[in-house]
Amino acid sequence: MSATAPTLPDGHAQDPGKRDFLKLVAGFSAVIGVGALAWPLIDSMNPSGDVLALSSVEFDLAPVAEGQGVTIVWRGKPIFVRHRTAAEIKTAESVKLSDLGDPAKDADRVKAGHSQWIVLVGICTHLGCVPLGNKPTDPRGDFGGWFCPCHGSQYDVSGRMRHGPAPANLPVPPYAFMTDSRIKIG
């Protein structure tokens, strides 16, 4: 261990080989024990039962007019729901994948048969600000989608990153259509 290892008084000479096995078992078990002790402490910081129970929300799409976007809260995060116009869908679908920093087809980002609805986690993938563009009066950037005021990232109407420092597209949360006008997020 070190140069200052215990200098034992006479009669205390150690016989290392003989003791090794038991010591190993004891040491190994102690490590397991301490690990098992630490895990509950760490796990207590993970989402608790009541937080997890709230992890899905239902939302009625009917009141959202074409061209309009709304923001709802899911797990404490803003979720963008945008009712896209036919022209917007067309633009989004016609973009060449080679023009995209994080290539993704528009069709993969919406639910089949519901391509007028785009649902996104409204958090800029750069550093976590909430982009503008859901309100009609907001700047939507050069690509008609969303514009992040913090560092100038721009997203198109499919939520794909088109300009600025953001490294990835706005993520699509897990959701499903319960009826044609009702979705369940989470």
């Binding site: 895990w39 402490l41 608790s48 039962g49 937080v51």
Partner: peptide, 13 residues
């Protein structure tokens, strides 16, 4: 009560 019921291992802590 929430610690005991809902926090992971909260009852243990």
């Amino acid at each position: 009560e929430r610690i005991v019921r809902d926090v992971n291992y909260g009852w243990l802590l």
